[in-house]
């Protein structure tokens, strides 16, 4: 599997698990890096607090690629502003665009996301837009210069799995960029299924953060993602539309 790299904006990664750090603790980051093998961790940008002595950066080992997001942005303009500030924080030029107008379902605004992608890609960012899985939007994102497309599997934080499976499959089949399934993946089996479908990577936070045994769940996700990737590369066996197909020889039976 060593030659099978995940390439985003010219950067190579061995791991196909991305950690969201919304619900974070030392334990989560340690488990995600050590047990799930995460090489990319997302961060958010917020007003700095002088009294805050600890920084999430203290928990993240060197060598991890930081993926700042634009959470809190309600439109393209706000997302662009947050992205620029994130880059000024001096941790690289990756950005995950996250634009939400609604705080109940936290669904991404595809139109504003395309706008922000276009502006930031021109400014040299490696742009990874979080989006509602829609083929037309995904094509617009490609044209706007996105480095990957990150469709949601089900509502953020819900752990409900691949509710949008059919539409993510269309993106995988039609879009020539890494499709990273983000939001809603709650179980290793769901991560595995997305990878079998041809997803390039899985991003998760709540699935680990709310698990009983965090390191064990991180390790389960690693195995599931690797198994799914292997199955995809191997090519899944065919499915019959009807009937059965013998898997034993149909000759030489012990009867007259």
């Amino acid at each position: 599997m060593n030659s099978d790299k995940l390439i985003i904006g010219g950067h190579e990664f061995n791991s196909r698990f991305i950690l969201g750090s919304g619900k974070y603790s030392m334990k989560l980051i340690e488990a995600a890096v050590k047990d799930a093998g995460a090489e990319i961790i997302t961060l958010a940008v917020r007003r700095a607090n002088t009294k805050e002595n600890e920084s999430i950066l203290d928990y993240i080992p060197k060598g991890i690629t930081l993926l700042p997001n634009t959470s809190g942005a309600r439109n393209a303009e706000e997302a662009v502003r947050i992205a620029r500030l994130a880059r000024a924080l001096g941790c690289g030029n990756f950005v995950k665009i996250e634009i939400m107008r609604d705080s109940k379902y936290l669904l991404p605004d595809n139109v504003e996301t395309v706008k922000a992608t276009e502006i930031l890609a021109k400014e040299g960012f490696v742009v990874m837009p979080y989006m509602y899985p829609d083929l037309n939007t995904a094509r617009d994102l490609v044209n706007a210069g996105a480095a990957s497309v990150m469709p949601l599997a089900s509502p953020i934080g819900s752990n409900k799995g691949l509710a949008t499976k059919e539409f993510i499959q269309i993106l995988i089949d039609e879009i020539d960029l890494p499709i990273i399934v983000d939001a809603g993946i709650g179980r290793p089996s769901q991560a595995c299924e997305a990878m079998e479908m041809g997803a390039a990577a899985i991003m998760a936070n709540t699935a680990l953060a709310t698990a009983g045994d965090l390191p064990m769940m991180a390790s389960a996700f690693k195995q599931a993602i690797e198994a799914g990737r292997k199955a995809y590369l191997a090519g899944l066996g065919r499915v019959l539309t009807r009937g059965a197909s013998a898997s034993d020889p149909l000759t030489g039976f012990l009867r007259d």
Binding site: A44, V45, R46, R47, A48, N49
Partner: peptide, 10 residues
């Protein structure tokens, strides 16, 4: 002025 830093998120 706005002063920002990274926090967990995402």
């Amino acid at each position: 002025i706005e002063i920002v830093s990274f926090v967990g998120g995402g």
